[in-house]
Structure formats: structure tokens, C-alpha cells
């Protein structure tokens, strides 16, 4: 498959401080790719270099082979959101579309309709709620029908309903054959959406490959548990990540999941017990702690 993006040994530093170190990856055409890592890992700097907003100190970046203006073929949702407060929704979207030389009123109206904002199209940006402004920014990133879409933290600040709306939109864009780069620190949000990921930490790539391949590399040493009650120390469990009535249990090497289940049942009421591969979040923690 042809690659939309090829990044080769790219580095960037500010004021002598290295922000991106020798990063290499490629994104195949039609792929949904995840650039994941905690805040400050260097994700946004990589994206800005892809967009030619910044130039790398060393290394090479190649995007698309299109003879057209490359920037016109890219849709971008930046992490730092903002719009012209005094403009109407429609004026904003038409202006940003015109800057891509691919303004389409029809597609813009269609997307507004899909996001449930068609009736608000003549409202000023300043009159919109934060969530609505987020949706407008997402439309602005795709209203010119780009072949390559870069979404930097697309879920931040969204409520669950809008989060689902955006997820569905990304899945649909993926089905349409668009190449999508999702950058996020919310690793679990993207593990079911991305074909492949690049996990970065302090500017360096720590994991790169398909989500399934990476997970299987870390083995089936995780238990996802839904429970009622209070969990104490469990024999055979190395670490517990709590999330309300849910917990992710990381087993010690060689521990038997059946024995762990027996121990748990003696402490709490178990509603769900699933032996699985670790989450990307847990993998990241393991990698970082291991390094």
C-alpha cells in the first residue's frame, strides 16, 4: 500500500532542549494512525512539522505525492482550539474552506446537518457553547474534503454524547478511505479506532506497530474486573488500576488467573471478570517504568 506520510529520523529542539528525538514512522494511505503519549511528549511538535508550520532540525518528512499544494490536501484540528468570535459559523467555515482552495458550501451544510448544527449556521461563534465550538472546529478540519486528516486531541472537552458523535465521524471517514492521524494522550480512546500506533515518551518513539501486535507482545497478563465492595491485596496481582467499580489487574509473572479469581470472590461481589491483554495505558506505563 502506498504511504501518505513518511517520516524519517526527524529531530527538533527548542533553546537547546530536545523535544523530538530521531522519530521515524509512516502512515499508509487509508490508514487510521494513532500518535499517542502523555502531555508534553512531543506529539504537537511532530504534527506542526508535518504541516510545515515548523521545520525539523534534522531528518526528512514526505507527505503525499500530490502535485497540488500539499497543505490543501490536509485537514487539521489543532489541540489549541479557537475561532473568530465575531464571525458566523457559515462565514468561518467558508473562509477556512477558501484558504484550502476547496470551498464547498454543499459539503459544509451536509456536515453541519450531520453534527446537528444546521439551524445554528447563522449564529456568531461567540454565541456558541464550548462543545458546539468544538464541533465547528471539527467540521472546519474536514469541510474541504481532505485526503489526509490530522486530529490533535479530538476528544478533549467533549461530553460523552459528542464524544460518540466524533468517534462515529472518525470511523466513517476511515471507511471512506481517508488517511487519519489521531494524536492523543487518552490512549484507551483510540486503541479500538487505530490500525497502527506510534507511542512516544519525552520526544522518543517507544512503541510502533499495530495495536494487536503491540498488545500481544505484552501477553495476556491483565484482568478487567467489574465489582462491588472493597478490594484488598490480592495474591498473584502486581498492580491494580482502579476506575470506580472497575479495575485493571496486572498479574505477576506465572500467576494463575483462576487462583486470582478465587481470591477476589472471597473479598467482593464480581459482576464481570475478563482475562485480556493490557490496555495501551498500562503498556505505556510498563514501557516507561521499564525504561
Amino acid at each position: 500500500m502506498e504511504n501518505t506520510v513518511e517520516v524519517s529520523h526527524v529531530s527538533k529542539s527548542f533553546n537547546g532542549q530536545s523535544v523530538v528525538r530521531d522519530i521515524s514512522f509512516d502512515i499508509a494511505s487509508g490508514e487510521v494512525f494513532g500518535l499517542i503519549g502523555p502531555n508534553g511528549a512531543g506529539k504537537t511538535t511532530i504534527i506542526r512539522m508535518l504541516l510545515d508550520i515548523m521545520r525539523p532540525d534534522s531528518g526528512e518528512i514526505r507527505i503525499l505525492d500530490a502535485a497540488d499544494e500539499i497543505k490543501d490536501m490536509i485537514g487539521y484540528l489543532p489541540e489549541d482550539r479557537g475561532l473568530y468570535r465575531r464571525l458566523t459559523i457559515m462565514d468561518t467555515l467558508m473562509y477556512l474552506g477558501a484558504l484550502k482552495n476547496r470551498q464547498s458550501k454543499e459539503r459544509t451544510l451536509e456536515l453541519l446537518d450531520k453534527m446537528g448544527m444546521l439551524s445554528n449556521r447563522d449564529m456568531k461563534i461567540s454565541e456558541l457553547s464550548k462543545g458546539m465550538q468544538q464541533k465547528i472546529q471539527i467540521i472546519a478540519a474536514i469541510c474541504h474534503d481532505p485526503g489526509f486528516i490530522i486530529l490533535d486531541e479530538p476528544f478533549s472537552g467533549l461530553d460523552p454524547v459528542n464524544m460518540k458523535l466524533v468517534k462515529d465521524l472518525i470511523i466513517q471517514l476511515g471507511k471512506e478511505g481517508k488517511t487519519i492521524l489521531i494524536s492523543t494522550h487518552m490512549m484507551d480512546q483510540v486503541e479500538r479506532m487505530c490500525d497502527r500506533i506510534l507511542m512516544i515518551h519525552k520526544g522518543s518513539g517507544v512503541l510502533y506497530g499495530s495495536v494487536g501486535e503491540i498488545k500481544s507482545r505484552f501477553g495476556k497478563n491483565t484482568i478487567f474486573l467489574e465489582f462491588e465492595g472493597q478490594l484488598e491485596n490480592i495474591a498473584g496481582v502486581k498492580k491494580i488500576n482502579y476506575s470506580g467499580n472497575y479495575a485493571e489487574l496486572i498479574l505477576e509473572e506465572g500467576a494463575d488467573a483462576q487462583n486470582v479469581l478465587k481470591n477476589i470472590v472471597s473479598m467482593v461481589r464480581v459482576n464481570k471478570f475478563e482475562i485480556s491483554m493490557p490496555s495501551l495505558n498500562e503498556i505505556f506505563i510498563q514501557v516507561v517504568e521499564g525504561s
Binding site: I53, Y76, P78, R81, G82, Y84, R85, L99
Partner: peptide, 14 residues
């Protein structure tokens, strides 16, 4: 710069 629109603009123009 304050409302961050600059980044969207720079993703479209030089």
C-alpha cells in the same frame, strides 16, 4: 494568537 486561530491558518497558508 490568543484565540489560537493562527494555527489553523498556518496549516493552510505559508
Amino acid at each position: 494568537k490568543e484565540n489560537r486561530v493562527i494555527e489553523i491558518l498556518l496549516s493552510s497558508v505559508s
